[in-house]
Amino acid sequence: MTRISDVITKIEEILMIILMAAMVIIVTFSVAFRYFFNSPITWAGEVSIFLLIWVTFLGGSWGLKYNSQASITFLMDKVTGNQKKILMIIQLLSMILFLGVILFFTYKWIFLPSVHIQKSSSLLLPMWIPYSAVPIGLSFAAIHLIARLSPASIKREGAE
C-alpha cells in the first residue's frame, strides 16, 4: 500500500505541474486575447475552473498524505508514545470511514446516466471529465490514508 501511495503521489505531482501551468497560461491569454485581439476566448473561464477543481482534489489528497492540512494540534502535541499512536489510528480510521461513505456515493453518482448526458455550457465538453476530479482525488486520498495506517508509518509519524 505504501508503494502504491508513493506512485500515486508522483502522478499527483506531475498532474499538479501540468494543470497549474495550463491554468496560468489560459487565464493570461484570455486577458491578452480580449485586449489585443478583441476576441475573448469564451471557453477560458470554464476550462480554468475545471483545472482549479482538479487541482483542489489532487492537492487535497496530497495534503492528507503528508498531513499538511490545517488541524487543531492541541491534544496531539500533549500526548506521547502509545497514546499518540492510538490517537493517530483513531484519526486515520475515522477519515477512511468517512471517505469510504463519500466514495460509495460518488461512484454511484459519476456512473449515473444523467451525468453522462451533461455537457459544459461553452465548450460542450462532457461533464464527467471535470466531475471525475471528485472520485479520483478522493480515491487517491483514501489510499494515502490507508498507507499511513501501516505500522512503519505510524511509528515514524508518532516519533515526530
Partner: peptide, 23 residues
C-alpha cells in the same frame, strides 16, 4: 464586448451581430 449568459443559443445570436459575448 458584451456580457451574455454563457448559453450557446444566446451567445450565437450575439456573435452573429459581430459582438464579442463574454460569460
Amino acid at each position: 464586448k458584451l456580457r451574455v449568459t454563457p448559453s450557446p443559443p444566446m451567445q450565437d445570436f450575439y456573435r452573429s451581430t459581430g459582438a464579442a459575448p463574454e460569460g
